[in-house]
Design a protein around this nucleic acid. Structure first.
Length: 289
DNA sequence: AACATTTTCAACCGCAGGAGT
DNA sequence: GACTCCTGCGGTTGAAAATGT
């Protein structure tokens, strides 16, 4: 596949000019980086022609967005990120780019790959359709509590990113209710949480796009079970509300969690999430539910 | 050590939708 | 409205790396 060349044929591509395909070389990366640093990103077809790269605009765009862009995060997804993916996928399905917007530094490709290689694999092992309600139930009842447990474990050893870091993208969402937009989470979250019993990120399924809300007083959630008792409020498809409900003490611990970066020490995602005992247990669960 | 199998993830493809003409 | 071009998205592929035998 390396160094495969093909003729340009459409989409404004020049007939007769051979195009490279396959893995990018260091030289190509440098060319692309240099071009973008001088001219900015966008106008990919023009970029492809002007930069001297023998690549399509599409290929340049993909390479930049998925690999070269400076804020791209490398390495395994943290439990926090995995949790967020599970949550958001339960609501939006395979809207990878939309989900990626809530995971800074992660691309839609990363998330798509995670879902296909990790999540769908588990579903296959359980013989359950990964898009089924049953699988969602299994995830809600077994996987999510385990992720939260890992998050809590990690919070004891790693300490850098804060809850506001995790929620930043959600809070910055243009559809976020304005009454919350002036809360300074970087400083007030811990105080507010100490005063309140619940922290929730909630959405109305009738209009998921526009009603993303953060409730600090627990006034609209039906579930109040805290993390230590399990994560039973993970969204069911038929529920109108409730993405997640956590006890405030857990949230305070999360504030000390270390969000993915290059120094993320415990490679929890490399642990098999479910061992054979788990799978047996899940199959039992799936059978009786 | 050698080979087979599985997993990961970068990159490709086709399609849809928006903008411009 | 019809057409072309460009961009972005989601599905898929396959080489490389990791793991198992």
């Amino acid at each position: 596949m390396l160094n495969i060349l093909k003729k340009r044929c459409n989409n404004g591509d020049e007939e007769g000019v051979e195009q490279r395909k396959g893995p990018w070389t260091l030289e190509e990366d440098t060319l692309l980086n240099n071009y973008i640093s001088h001219n900015g990103e966008g106008r990919w077809n023009l970029l492809a022609k002007s930069s001297g790269l023998k690549r399509t605009g599409k290929s340049c765009r993909l390479r930049w967005l998925n690999y070269l862009k400076p804020d791209i995060k490398r390495g395994n997804l943290t439990p926090q990120e995995q949790l967020l993916i599970l949550e958001l996928h339960s609501k939006w399905g395979n809207r990878w780019s939309k989900i990626a917007k809530y995971l800074p530094g992660r691309t839609d490709n990363d998330i798509k790959n995670y879902w296909r290689t990790r999540v769908q694999k588990q579903a296959r092992q359980l013989n359950i359709d990964s898009n089924s309600h049953k699988f969602l139930e299994v995830v809600r009842s077994f996987w999510v509590p385990r992720l939260i447990h890992k998050m809590k474990d990690n919070s004891n050893t790693n300490s850098k990113a804060t809850l506001p870091d995790l929620l930043g993208p959600v809070l910055q969402d243009s559809s976020f209710p304005h009454e919350f937009s002036n809360i300074d989470f970087s400083t007030s979250m811990s105080v507010d949480l100490k005063k309140t019993s619940q922290f929730m990120v909630m959405e109305s399924s009738s209009d998921l796009e526009t009603t993303c809300s953060l409730y600090l007083d627990g006034s609209r959630g039906s579930s109040s079970q805290c993390v230590s008792e399990g994560y039973s409020s993970f969204p069911c498809l038929e529920e109108d509300y409730m993405v997640a409900t956590m006890g405030s003490s857990d949230i305070l611990q999360l504030q000390d969690c270390h969000v993915a970066d290059s120094t993320y020490e415990e490679d929890v995602t490399q642990d098999p999430m479910w061992n054979m005992d788990d799978i047996w247990q899940f199959k039992e669960y799936a059978h009786y539910n």
